[in-house]
């Protein structure tokens, strides 16, 4: 034993290998089974993917660091379920590359914020939170209304998402830019085919109140309004783990 360790230590490369092996065991044992397991992620056949506009909104959510203060993971605790809604299931974030579960609630959890408030409320709140919630400490995101949303690169984004395993079809990728515009301008020609590709329940409306101009606000509000609505698996599953 002793001779063994002395050899390890005298020979630098062997020492390096020893550290790598010893340190890797924990990660392999905990992470590898998550990829082989079927019960880690529940089945949700009706789960839909993010529309290009919602995906762009999600990128803005990450860009502005929203995840630093808002979690998207309701734990299996009674008070959380009563405050925020049914606890989060793994399947609900299966298309989230990366996940945005968060680790801190300076603001409330927003895993189920979709459709809880009106679009106009979100726009006003993002423009200046203290106009709607006087005690809020959230930053004002006024530039979201000013900035036009970049959509010409959206096919590339969908393609990258498909490369990591999200089932986007060729038609979705091809029409990504058009669909992004159409979702927020339901009267326009661009709106044709969006519900066909993403489902009849897709929110089709001018999220920032102006259908003529596609802003970053449109994208972010579209994302906020779909939160917790990609599948109804959580509502349908019996919540048996509460208080575990």
């Amino acid at each position: 034993m002793s001779e063994f360790h002395r050899k390890i230590e005298r020979n630098t490369m062997r020492f390096v290998l020893a550290i790598i092996v010893v340190a890797s065991i924990g990660g392999i044992v905990e992470i590898a089974p998550l990829f082989t397991i079927k019960s880690t992620v529940e089945a949700a056949p009706n789960m839909r993917v993010y529309t290009p506009l919602e995906l762009a909104g999600r990128s803005i959510y990450m860009r502005e660091g929203c995840y630093a203060c808002h979690s998207q993971m309701i734990r299996t605790l009674r008070d959380e379920v009563e405050r925020y809604g049914p606890y989060s299931l793994a399947v609900e974030s299966q298309y989230d590359h990366p996940m945005l579960w968060g680790s801190k609630r300076t603001g409330p959890d927003i895993a189920r914020v979709g459709e809880k408030y009106s679009d106009a409320w979100h726009v006003a709140h993002l423009y200046n939170p203290r106009d709607v919630v006087p005690e809020s400490v959230m930053p004002a995101y006024r530039w979201l209304l000013r900035n036009e949303l970049r959509i010409d690169d959206l096919p590339g984004h969908l393609r990258a998402m498909r490369d990591v395993g999200v089932p986007y079809t060729d038609a979705m990728i091809e029409n990504a830019a058009k669909d992004a515009f159409g979702q927020a301008a339901p009267e326009s020609d661009a709106a044709v085919g969006v519900t066909e590709r993403y489902g009849a329940a897709t929110h089709m409306r001018a999220f920032d109140g102006n259908a003529g101009r596609l802003t970053e606000m449109d994208a972010l509000v579209a994302y906020l309004q779909i939160m917790g609505k990609l599948t109804d698996a959580a509502q349908k599953t019996e919540q048996t783990k509460i208080g575990e």
Partner: peptide, 14 residues
């Protein structure tokens, strides 16, 4: 911009 190779629960654990 890039998209993480992992998603959801596997990404959280990683």
């Amino acid at each position: 911009k890039s998209y993480s190779a992992f998603s959801g629960v596997q990404d959280a654990m990683t």
